[in-house]
Each structure stands twice: as structure tokens, then as C-alpha cells.
């Protein structure tokens, strides 16, 4: 990664009229105290005010400051951490199962449940809620589901082992292509193309 110099990162030596009395707007933004040094703190009555530029330094600048980049409490026990993570996840899942009467591991409703669960074909839910794996056997509508591979790689989607596809819990069969298309979230392109498109024709990719 290349270093980008950001000349405006700090402007030093600026002094404002309003702050002459007690406080000099400190100096270097650091630690718990980038504060309000009472005038005695800095020699020669020299006050510096570093203005933060609205700018984030690039990653490469991280290497420079060894003081911020540090390990606070010694090495992390990775295996133990993994064990604790799995345990925490299991606990969360158990609590959620109890609350919603749904077994999230097998993706099936629990027998004793306060809720009545009903399956919905994937094409009828917004993109966000669809499983990342393209659903097979969903009929012609299933093929039309745009699955962006980028979503799979998205960093904040954790990799849960043994993720089930949503259609496993499908109870009500899809009512065919037309119905599925109708329920799809509308795009602006839907309206632009509406005049030219024949209704029963399947949409082109990039809809």
C-alpha cells in the first residue's frame, strides 16, 4: 500500500483570539488527554492548536506510530478463544430458539412453539434475506434470483458452518414465475422498461 502524504493533517501554531485565557486547545490529539492545557503547561506561552483535518490517514501510516499500535494484555489463546466463540454462539442460538420457537440449526420450527411458522419461497423475500447459495429446484423463478457472488465474500457476514438453504423450510409451493416476479422489490428500471417490455417475458439480467 502506498503512502499518501497529507499535508493538511496538522496545522500547527494556530492561535485563536477566544482561547487566550485559561486554555490552549491542546496540541496533539492523543491519549486520554489531548486537552485544554492550562497555560502554565506549555513553555514560552506558545500555544499550538492542531486542527484535525477531515481526513483519515491511510493504512500505511499505521506502521509509523508504534505507540498506538500495541498489544495490551499479552498473547491471545486462539484455541480457547475459538472454544469460547462457539460456546457463546451456541448459547445465543439456544436463547433465540427458545424465544422464537425455531430451531436455527436444522432450520425447522420447534414442536412446542408460541409461533406458527410458515415457509415462504426465496423469491418473495427481499434480497437481503436470501441465502447466498443459489437455490436449486425452486422452479424457473429460482433461476432468476440474482445472486451476487460479492455478497458471499462480504466481510460482516460470518461464515456459519452448515448453513441451510431457505427453501428447506418451504411449505407453500411457489405459485409460478409470474406470482414470484410480481412480489419482487421494484427497481427504477422496472418503470423505465415497463412500456417496452412485454409483461410475460422474463426480465433481462441486470434488472
Amino acid at each position: 500500500m502506498s503512502t499518501r502524504l497529507c499535508p493538511g493533517m496538522y496545522r500547527a501554531g494556530e492561535r485563536r483570539a477566544g482561547e487566550s485565557l485559561t486554555a490552549a486547545c491542546l496540541v496533539k490529539s492523543s491519549a486520554a488527554v489531548r486537552l485544554l492545557l492550562h497555560t502554565g503547561g506549555v513553555k514560552h506561552g506558545r500555544k499550538m492548536c492542531r486542527i484535525m483535518a477531515p481526513h483519515k490517514p491511510t493504512l500505511s501510516s499505521l506502521g509509523g506510530n508504534r505507540r498506538v499500535r500495541r498489544n495490551l494484555f499479552g498473547p491471545v489463546d486462539r484455541d480457547q478463544l475459538q472454544v469460547e466463540y462457539q460456546a457463546a454462539l451456541r448459547k445465543d442460538l439456544d436463547e433465540a430458539s427458545k424465544r422464537w420457537g425455531f430451531d436455527f440449526k436444522s432450520y425447522k420450527p420447534l414442536e412446542s412453539s408460541d409461533f406458527k411458522w410458515e415457509g415462504i419461497p426465496e423469491t418473495r423475500v427481499p434480497l437481503l434475506y436470501r441465502s447466498c447459495v443459489p437455490a436449486e429446484g425452486l422452479g424457473p423463478a429460482g433461476g432468476a434470483v440474482p445472486t451476487k457472488p460479492a455478497r458471499v465474500e462480504k466481510e460482516n457476514i460470518p461464515q456459519t458452518p452448515g448453513k441451510r438453504k431457505l427453501q428447506d423450510l418451504k411449505k407453500t409451493p411457489a405459485k409460478g414465475e409470474k406470482a414470484a416476479l410480481k412480489r419482487k422489490q421494484t427497481n427504477i428500471t422496472d418503470f423505465y422498461q415497463a412500456k417496452r417490455r412485454v409483461v410475460w417475458k422474463p426480465r433481462k439480467s441486470g434488472e
Binding site: L26, V27, K28, S30, A31, A32, L37, G41, R46, M48
Partner: peptide, 8 residues
């Protein structure tokens, strides 16, 4: 001087 006045 500036560095020195930086409390860490």
C-alpha cells in the same frame, strides 16, 4: 516540545 507534551 510538542511531542513531549503528549501524554500517553
Amino acid at each position: 516540545l510538542d511531542q513531549a507534551s503528549t501524554p500517553t
